[in-house]
């Protein structure tokens, strides 16, 4: 996916068709989870309930869903014959802070990009519109500060 590298940050190609189709698969997964299991596909909800305390059943199902996510790049690589490209920061302190914030914030706010951003917006939930607006704004501001104020 990454075409070439800028002096500071890798540029990425604009991929409207692949991104729309990939998004449609995400939406289809969410619809089928509701149809079959009656549950909303929120990744932070699924992942956080793999941790104690355990109050409800369904542990094996949630673990299987996460296992499917982990398997996806290998299946994609096997089907297309091309390895999946991901550019992950090697600044480990930054990634530690980012992980803590994402995990805490997702559970504290009752959802993440999938639960609020996709499923909640599709259900026209006012809470999810607020949450999505807040995390998008925080993300835009953070990248602006990191790349153009601190890093610029």
């Amino acid at each position: 996916m990454t075409g070439f590298t800028s002096t500071i940050f890798p540029l990425t190609d604009f991929t409207p068709v692949a991104s729309f189709l990939g998004g449609a698969l995400i939406g289809l997964s969410a619809v089928l989870l509701l149809l079959v299991e009656g549950r909303i596909a929120g990744i932070s909800g699924i992942a956080s309930r793999l941790l104690p305390p355990y109050r409800e059943g369904g542990f094996a199902g949630r673990l299987a869903f996460i296992a499917g996510l982990i398997a996806a790049p290998f299946v994609a690589g096997a089907v297309t014959g091309a390895p999946v490209v991901q550019t992950v920061s090697s600044n480990l302190l930054l990634m530690l802070a980012a992980g803590l914030l994402v995990g805490f914030g997702a559970v504290w706010g009752g959802g993440c990009t999938s639960g609020h951003g996709v499923c909640g917006m599709a259900r026209l939930s006012p809470r999810s519109f607020v949450a999505t607006g807040v995390f998008m704004t925080a993300g835009f501001l953070t990248v602006f500060l990191v790349r153009h104020v601190i890093g610029g």
Binding site: T2, A18, S19, L25, I26, S29, L33, G68, I70, T87
Partner: peptide
């Protein structure tokens, strides 16, 4: 079912490019 739907969700993330932090 959950394994298959997690895989479908993950393939969507990979195809869409959202799995790449860049």
């Amino acid at each position: 079912v959950n394994l298959a739907l997690g895989l479908l969700f993950g393939l969507g993330l990979v195809l869409s490019g959202m799995s790449d932090p860049a």
